[in-house]
Design a protein around this nucleic acid. Structure first.
Lengths: 180, 180
DNA sequence: CCAGCTACGTTGACATTGTCAACACAGGCT
DNA sequence: AGCCTGTGTTGACAATGTCAACGTAGCTGG
């Protein structure tokens, strides 16, 4: 598998994303950091957006694992739900730039099947973390994901802190309807 | 006040955004369309992001009005809630590029007070559309906004259609816990 | 074994774009 | 009148995504 270089490119991009932010992820910088030349990425990705999509896939996989781990430590339905929300938002706020990329790339999902697949992984991870009382309907899973997603964005944007609200407060509201 | 030109610039930007998408909103294009020269925007905005922030304020005001109008036509708590979600997501999907801008600019909210103010307007509009049974707590409002926001993004990104779910289905789930 | 194709990588060049500096000009204030 | 300030213009520059042309190593089929 000669994806070796490809992986290294994505890894370089991830490092740039983490250390210098989304704007620093330029094809030239990625090439440099990988020890290659500026246009090297074009041998492995058709486009810059293709690189970003691959990077987003990595980030989403991380996020997904993080969330799944957090959920698996809880037992009751309500606690699992809370763990889901909290871990999701916590990851987002702790990795601002990565989450920013995820947002941006969602708009490209249609053109990048792997991205859609990665997003699917999050939902299935969520589904498996259900109550054990049978499969959770898709619409319900997407409702959860929507909420977590929106909450994460507001938190990252500082819209909550700005109002003196912690995201924990909102999670309380969201979890309230569900019994223990 | 000579904000006239400033307004015209924003209006040109809005037209570009609607007709050719976010990527077409370039300072040069805005200048051209306004009948001015490429760097003219610099006399009214410190930055390109400042222009975009002003544009986002306009868009959010539109969205806010749209949502407020939809809510005001419903009476019961549940119906209002449903109207809120539906009108919000409908606006987002019907104005993809505009909503894309809103997403992008949220990350700049910290640096642009007017933007935060505009976002506040949405929540207060939401608050006034409450049940009439006293003010709705902030955390609850933000929870609603989060959900609508996240749902809108998934819808715009095509993540729902891709699964054969309409956003109406999800709204049903979201509204379910609230009695008529 | 050799000709040649393919994958991978490099340099050069280009258009676009955000941004700044230098200049022009008009109107109101002193 | 003299001048400052707001508004606008052109020229220039660096960064960036992208393409074209070129090089090269290695495997493949004859």
């Amino acid at each position: 598998m000669m994806d070796d270089t490809r992986t290294r490119l994505v890894e370089s991009a991830l490092r740039l994303l983490r250390e210098e932010g989304l704007d620093a992820v330029t094809l030239r910088a990625v090439g440099d950091l990988t020890g290659l030349s500026r246009t090297a990425p074009y041998r492995h990705f058709t486009d810059k957006t293709a690189l970003l999509a691959a990077l987003a896939v990595r980030v989403i996989a991380d996020l997904s694992a993080h969330v799944a781990a957090a959920i698996s430590q809880e037992a009751g339905r309500r606690d699992r739900l809370r763990a889901f929300y909290l871990s999701y938002v916590k990851y987002a706020t702790a990795h601002r730039e990565e989450y920013r990329l995820v947002f941006a790339s969602e708009f490209l999902a249609g053109h990048h099947p792997e991205l859609e697949e990665a997003i699917d992984q999050v939902t299935t991870a969520l589904g498996m973390a259900g109550t054990g009382e049978g499969p959770v309907p898709k619409a319900q899973l997407m409702a959860l994901l929507s909420t977590a997603h929106g909450l994460a964005e507001l938190a990252v944007a500082g819209q909550l802190a700005h109002k003196g609200i912690g995201y924990g407060d909102i999670v309380d509201v969201l979890v309230a309807p569900y019994g223990g």
